[in-house]
């Protein structure tokens, strides 16, 4: 019994202090830690699901007056790191980084936000403005999209309908 306590003491001595060196040194950050939210405007379709499910009401989409796209805001000062936005986003455009460093002076309170611009795409045939359609969305809906789908997914709904009908007609003809 007495010897075992010496063993513990000896092991503790060998291990050194278990105190996290932060803020005087580097700390350990797990890769999957849920921290500040980041948005990839290229992958976002602007569907608004993230804003709907957001527990802290941290996400705001504001349509631009000129119809060119949406402003995408995330206010870190009300984000709860719940991860619902990441879970429900169809294209993985919004995700939680492992950046936990959030402390700031109160004068910067309203500067603690992400601001991205999600531009609308243009139909390559008729130049109609429409929500951006990243390939990730196609993968999400169809798994492995066929060649026909690849050919039409960038078109606006109207042109897509026409093109799809043409493709279908051509198939019947064959």
């Amino acid at each position: 019994m007495v010897l075992s306590i010496f063993k513990v003491l000896w092991n503790n001595l060998k291990q050194g202090p278990s105190t996290d060196p932060f803020p005087f040194g580097e700390t350990f950050t797990p890769a999957r830690l849920r921290g500040k939210v980041a948005v990839d405007p290229e992958a976002c379709v602007g569907c608004g699901v993230c804003a709907t499910v957001c527990a802290g009401n941290a996400i705001k989409h504001v349509e631009r007056g000129d119809g060119s796209g949406k402003d995408f805001y995330v206010w870190h000062n009300t984000c709860t790191f719940c991860g619902l936005c990441q879970h429900y986003c169809p294209t993985d455009a919004i995700r939680l980084t492992n950046n936990w460093s959030t402390a700031h002076r109160n004068e910067d309170k309203y500067k603690m936000k992400e601001h991205e611009f999600v531009a609308y795409a243009r139909c390559p045939q008729c130049d109609q403005a429409m929500p951006n359609m990243p390939h990730a969305m196609l993968d999400h809906i169809y798994g492995a999209p066929t060649e026909e789908l690849e050919a039409i997914y960038k078109l606006c709904p109207e042109c897509r309908r026409q093109k799809a009908a043409q493709q279908f007609g051509a198939q019947i003809h064959d």
Binding site: G56, N77, F81, T102, A103, R105, N106, M112
Partner: peptide, 9 residues
């Protein structure tokens, strides 16, 4: 003076 956001930080 200082804010430390997070739920919890």
């Amino acid at each position: 003076d200082v804010n430390v956001p997070g739920c919890p930080p």
